[in-house]
Design a binder for these strands. Structure first.
Lengths: 370, 370
DNA sequence: TTGTACGCGTTATCAA
DNA sequence: TTGATAACGCGTACAA
């Protein structure tokens, strides 16, 4: 009754070919169709005997169904693509975790690609994902045009934009309420005595996140009579651009306390570097609120005030959106908007408030000290 | 001559089915085989006329070959799996970039999975990747046993272990020379006047990276007569464990300067938190060298001395290793070992050296200041 | 230079 | 309850 697995000899070593459904059928003495029924869990239509035979056969041959063959037959690859502009951005990774969990829950696999901010690479990646017949796409675009996205992908493929919108608004979207977040950051600074504020962002050039954050910032400035606001665009690829920008902003005479809103995690990093290089101190020489909560936000004295995003939930929402489309939802493009949370630390403290490098009260005064 | 694409009507909207090679053949008035030849770029065997006809047909129908069908036929999915224990670890992401680039160069796609440190999830992921018939696997294991890995995957599947070795040494490996790196870190501290050093790591429990770093540490301590060394294991899931461990270490009386070597990026983060919470200052109260260069290493005063890994190259090497196996290499398990680089900053300074929060000489004294 | 026909591993539709 | 057979989209012998 035991039949050996088909084996072919290459390079002197015997390499067993992976067992197929036909092998299992032969081993169990049943037809492929029956095995297929077993795989679909149709225990109601199978006799207990054959059920067990097949079970044994599968175990004996170490058989695993080929998702490739399944995909070809059924057209359902159970693959979801996600293209991010920058994997090294903690935001992307954090979102990924949520997306991944939700995918696994639904039996999908996530194929992650990194465009590195390049349009050309993004195009290639979309073509690649298309070749693998992904069923849906999460796109954190490098700034490609909506038409190019449509052209690169088959009609009707569910797409959800992540964090960055694309102009014509034809796609689903998941991301932050940037206007509200920027407004909150600005009001927070104003409320803590800062009156001359700069929002520093990478070149805005139509990137929706940046546009919106700048807009919310301007609105909040406008509603406060005594305040001045500037939007500064900095090309982070140029080595000293940030330091010069910060220096110039701080050098302009003003009677009010100055502060910076950093429009992204990367900008926050570079802003802090610049501030330190210039030998300045937060919040006295300059206040700071940064978008995105980072693991080191609390570590750099006097602690950096940040706007945290619910990244995990954003990832989950993106996948849910896709799953809904796959389940047949044919509504108009839908946006899922989350709210940011301001986490207050020393970098935006009032003059009377926390001082930089103040000795923090230990959580457990001396509990650990012998 | 124009034949329309097959279309089926669902939910009131006409959704074009993706064009197949047969559609292209029909449109161009040739056989499928001829189109297939076109796709393989065999311009030498095709007449110029048919070449153009096919080109037109493909453009007109917006045809894209199905990688799924190709995979089924040829058994080559051009898919490489990578399972990491923690996507949020900057190390993993940095390695990913190298791996991804090298994959793209070789025409492979990378399927990233995150086990989150869970054995069970790791097993599931391996099963999933197997179902998709990946051609190779990069495994940053959550600590699963080598046998389980072998069992979960088909015989002969090229596997390269990343960062963490698995006991029996049956697999290829790419990672750091941890012993040398730990030795260098220790010697560096000793050379800067520290004589009572603790290596702090997460519970070692057989994780090769931790074992090796502890080993290198002990060796270096042993070669320096006047020095004391302790290995402290801290469970980072317990909220105050780190702070207590640091406090206890610093409380033990000693005539020599004390320092900590943090055995990973995460441990570095937590150690710095603990030091700050205790109101202590580096390097006077305690010195620090941390494994893994992090974006904020230079930002936390007085700057944290780190051991940087060539992460990008490690990623590239992992994929190259796989590609070599796929090309037929049948040698013994091979290890590719990289060397860490110590980046010196204030946290490990000699007593006479840098002081914390010393005003740094600005790179460009006042160039940017109007 | 081109076409015919088969097989890759599944699932689904029939019949039995 | 089970089996034979036809797809799914592509590559590739082999034949023309």
């Amino acid at each position: 009754m035991l039949r050996r697995l088909p084996a072919d000899v290459r390079r002197g070593t015997t390499v067993r070919r992976a067992a197929t459904i036909a092998d299992v059928a032969a081993y169990a003495g049943v037809s492929k169709a029956t095995v297929s029924r077993f795989l679909s869990g149709r225990s109601d239509v199978l006799s207990e005997t054959t059920w067990k035979q097949i079970q044994d056969a599968i175990a004996a041959l170490d058989y695993r169904p080929s998702q490739i063959a399944r995909s070809l037959k059924g057209g359902r690859t159970r693959l979801i693509g996600i293209v991010v502009a920058d994997v090294t951005n903690p935001y992307s990774v954090a979102v990924l975790r949520g997306a991944e969990d939700e995918c696994q829950r639904a039996g999908y696999m996530l194929a992650l690609c990194n465009s590195g901010g390049s349009h050309a690479k993004e195009q290639e990646l979309l073509a690649g994902l298309r070749a693998y017949r992904i069923e849906g796409l999460i796109l954190n675009s490098a700034g490609i045009a909506a038409d190019q996205v449509s052209d690169a992908l088959p009609d009707g493929l569910p797409i959800v934009l992540l964090d960055r919108k694309l102009p014509p608004g034809r796609f689903d979207f998941v991301g932050l309420n940037n206007i509200a977040a920027a407004t909150e950051a600005t009001r927070h600074l104003v409320g803590h005595g800062f009156g001359d504020i700069a929002l520093i962002a990478e070149p805005i050039t139509g990137v929706s996140v940046r546009t919106e954050r700048a807009l919310g910032f301007r609105q909040a400035i406008a509603e406060n009579e005594g305040c001045t606001g500037t939007v500064i665009e900095v090309d982070l690829h140029q080595p000293d651009a940030m330091q010069q920008a910060v220096a110039r902003f701080l050098a302009t005479p003003s009677s009010r306390r100055k502060a910076v809103i950093a429009a992204s995690g990367l900008v926050t990093l570079r802003t802090v570097q610049a501030i330190q290089s210039l030998g300045l101190h937060m919040p006295d020489d300059v206040g700071l609120v940064g978008f995105d909560e980072l693991e080191w936000s609390a570590l750099v004295p006097p602690g950096i005030t940040t706007i945290a995003q619910p990244t995990y939930d954003i990832g989950v929402a993106a996948v849910r959106n896709l799953l809904a489309r796959l389940a047949g939802h044919r509504d108009e493009p839908h946006s899922t908007i989350f709210t940011g949370t301001l986490i207050e630390r020393g970098s935006s403290a009032s003059e009377a408030g926390l001082r930089p490098m103040a000795v923090p009260a230990p959580a457990q005064p001396a509990a650990g000290l012998v």
